[in-house]
Amino acid sequence: MKLTKKMQSALVIEENIQLLKCPICSAEMEMEEHARLVCENKHSFDLAKSGYVNLAPQAHSTKYDKSLFEARTAVMNSGYFEPVLENIIARLNGHLAEIERPVLLDAGCGEGTHLHVVHSQMPTGSVGVGIDLAKEGIVAASKAYTGIVWSVADLAAMPFADGSIDAILNILSPANYAEFDRLLKPGGMLIKVVPESGYLQELREVFYDGKQQKEEADPVAKASEHFDAVETERVTYEFELPNGLLEPLIRMTPLTWGASEEKVREALEMGMNYITIDLRVIVGVRR
């Protein structure tokens, strides 16, 4: 008899229960009846039917809705990100080769495609954990991909034990270096991916008249404040857009949020054949 998604997830979580801590009181957690996580202070968190668990104690509303994650899934499944993911997989497998059952956390995993692809290329027994504050993303991830621990959680207070993670991914998502430092084992690896100046430049020409958006503080310098052996690699290529992919790409990227439907139609009517991917992979090791 085939196990339900909820039961499959419950078994994966139970096998890795030592990773989790209560998001309210930080106590250790236990699985009850393959249906809920409970801590010694009786804080309880039910597994959803699709297998994820909500460990964000406060209700949060985000600007990320179901349609955005559907658009993102379509784009990510097209091979759009493949060279970047290959870069990440090579780095992870090199760093984690000698570790038995390494634990990989994707902090800001969205709808889970990146973590699914990376985890599938890691050695058998590797543990994948994906968190995001956007519930719709985690719902989509848990419905699409089994064998991974999916949780709604806050990057500012992640519900995991100190020193329990071997590697963290942080792809086009805000970072919380204090939490990364707390969670990673000594020698643990952080891989952060940030946009470079040419990223989606064809869309920027339409929506921003080619102007650069204001960048945050230097992400390489920031990583170097918290991690050792920081190195970076710029990954740049042109991705040929299959028919029908331009609209989901426009819908998923923050570059176009707030744009008028007229501007969106203008971009669609241009019939772009390719898009520039220009990203920097930043790698650091916990001190």
Score class of each variant (00 low, 15 high):
77 N>M: 13
14 E>D: 15
281 V>K: 01
58 Q>R: 07
4 T>V: 06
33 E>L: 15
263 K>Y: 11
236 T>V: 03
182 R>S: 10
71 A>M: 09
234 R>V: 07
252 M>P: 02
28 E>N: 10
120 S>W: 08
281 V>S: 06
147 G>M: 02
102 P>Y: 09
267 A>Y: 01
276 T>G: 00
205 E>K: 09
155 L>G: 02
153 A>T: 10
92 L>Y: 06
86 E>P: 14
80 Y>D: 06
93 N>P: 12
114 H>L: 02
178 A>E: 03
179 E>I: 06
213 Q>K: 07
271 G>P: 06
281 V>R: 01
230 V>C: 06
197 S>Q: 13
251 R>F: 04
194 V>G: 13
5 K>L: 05
93 N>W: 04
228 D>S: 08
276 T>S: 15
196 E>I: 01
227 F>Q: 00
116 H>E: 03
124 T>F: 02
68 L>S: 08
206 V>E: 07
25 C>S: 15
147 G>S: 05
253 T>V: 12
1 M>T: 12
267 A>M: 07
89 I>K: 13
198 G>T: 05
34 H>S: 14
216 E>G: 09
150 W>A: 01
212 Q>P: 00
40 E>F: 04
168 I>Q: 03
162 D>Q: 08
212 Q>L: 02
178 A>F: 14
277 I>L: 12
81 F>Q: 11
111 E>M: 08
24 I>A: 05
250 I>R: 00
204 R>N: 01
54 N>G: 08
46 D>M: 01
153 A>D: 13
279 L>D: 00
284 G>E: 02
166 D>V: 03
124 T>Q: 09
28 E>R: 10
253 T>E: 01
115 L>H: 14
6 K>W: 05
84 V>A: 15
238 E>I: 10
220 V>R: 13
6 K>G: 00
227 F>D: 03
83 P>G: 01
81 F>S: 09
211 K>D: 14
127 V>Y: 10
234 R>T: 05
65 D>P: 04
202 E>Y: 07
266 E>Q: 05
228 D>M: 06
102 P>S: 12
125 G>F: 03
23 P>F: 12
217 A>E: 11
11 L>P: 11
106 D>F: 11
157 A>E: 02
53 V>D: 00
171 I>A: 08
35 A>Y: 09
129 V>L: 06
190 L>G: 04
205 E>G: 09
36 R>S: 10
23 P>D: 12
131 I>A: 13
112 G>V: 13
11 L>R: 07
270 M>T: 10
217 A>K: 11
194 V>L: 10
162 D>M: 08
38 V>Y: 06
206 V>C: 15
253 T>K: 00
143 K>D: 14
241 L>Q: 02
178 A>T: 14
266 E>R: 04
154 D>Q: 06
197 S>V: 04
49 K>H: 05
176 N>H: 04
127 V>R: 14
174 P>Q: 02
141 A>F: 02
251 R>P: 08
157 A>D: 13
146 T>P: 15
48 A>Y: 05
211 K>Q: 03
125 G>M: 05
12 V>S: 10
3 L>P: 01
125 G>H: 14
67 S>N: 07
161 A>V: 05
8 Q>Y: 14
198 G>K: 09
34 H>M: 08
124 T>H: 04
6 K>I: 03
259 A>S: 12
209 D>H: 13
239 F>S: 11
16 N>A: 07
213 Q>E: 07
121 Q>E: 13
23 P>K: 09
42 K>Y: 11
